[in-house]
């Protein structure tokens, strides 16, 4: 970017004699490579197990390479569409759909409310706005278990128990703490003069939001979307407690089928299901990851 020409990265490994340079590089790459290996090993093992037939896994254990003649992708298909969970043989596809039906609306709604809250709390100051902001963000630090009972009560009263709509509701409200915190802290760096100028120009609350604030928001929207999407998708406590059977999101369903049943464990199918469940947050992160850090560290207006 623009700074690149005037700014030379400090490269500590480029100093000293040739031998020192080689050894220090070796140590750095070796150590980091080792950590990466440790961190990525479980993923590798699970991935390999999705390709192996069950008897092979049982015979040689988890940690082994698939054999060329027996390896197959059919366990993926089975996990997706035909595997029997709780007496229904439809695989994880329907839970996958549940998860999408839960995560997408909850992400969109909590992000929208967060943008609006952040806009109000940073640009339309009122008496005790600081207190209200503090109360909203208290939710960030509240342990999830503590909210289980109150939520169960509320969902029951609203008639949303054991429904995806109920989970959307819970995740939206819970998520507002985070999104409000992010958006408000981002918006305070937008100069107040912009708002004043817009007010003199004759723009009202919503027009300023739409024409001035929102166009400046993409970096923070990316942050909240990644945060909310991965958080809600991966969450399983609420899913497990508030839904059951066909209404569960995929995380809870996987816990249910891998923990249940007296029959033999289908490790290969389970492994495929687990990886499938991990894909959407991964996609989101790969697509938006580089904007994530930027959005968190950069102000709204350079």
């Amino acid at each position: 970017m623009a700074e690149a020409a005037t700014h030379q990265e400090f490269d500590p490994l480029a100093t000293g004699g040739t031998r020192r340079r080689i050894t220090s590089k070796g140590i750095v790459y070796g150590a980091l490579g080792l950590f990466a290996l440790i961190y990525l090993a479980p993923l590798m093992i699970i991935l390999l197990n999705t390709l192996r037939p069950l008897d092979d896994i049982v015979r040689t254990g988890f940690i082994a390479l698939p054999e060329a003649e027996t390896m197959s992708l059919k366990y993926w298909a089975e996990a997706w569409g035909t595997f029997c969970i709780g007496g229904t043989c439809e695989g994880v596809s329907r839970f996958y759909k549940n998860s999408l039906m839960m995560t997408i609306p909850a992400t969109v709604l909590s992000t929208m409310f967060g943008l609006l809250n952040g806009y109000i709390l940073s640009k339309w100051r009122f008496r005790y706005d600081g207190v209200i902001f503090g109360l909203i963000t208290l939710g960030v630090f509240m342990p999830q278990q503590m909210t289980l009972l109150p939520w169960a009560f509320v969902l029951g009263k609203l008639g949303l128990s054991n429904s995806i709509a109920g989970l959307v509701f819970v995740h939206t409200i819970q998520g507002i703490s985070f999104t409000t915190l992010f958006c408000r802290n981002y918006f305070v760096s937008i100069p107040d003069d912009l708002i004043k100028a817009a007010r003199i120009d004759g723009a009202g609350f919503w027009r300023i939001f739409r024409r001035i604030i929102l166009p400046l928001s993409p970096p923070i929207v990316i942050v909240t979307v990644i945060w909310q999407f991965t958080g809600i998708w991966n969450e399983f406590l609420f899913g497990t407690v508030f839904t059951s059977g066909a209404n569960q999101p995929i995380t809870s369903a996987i816990v249910a089928f891998s923990g249940s049943g007296t029959g033999e464990r289908h490790y290969n199918v389970e492994a495929a299901a687990v990886i499938m469940a991990a894909i959407p947050p991964l996609i989101i992160y790969v697509l938006g990851g580089k904007y994530f850090v930027r959005g968190l560290t950069q102000g709204a207006v350079k």
Binding site: A197, A198, I200, R211, I212
Partner: peptide, 15 residues
């Protein structure tokens, strides 16, 4: 019915 010029100019950055 006033118009104002700000010290920071306050130009809308995305427009």
């Amino acid at each position: 019915d006033i118009a104002m010029v700000f010290q920071s100019y306050a130009l809308y950055p995305t427009m």
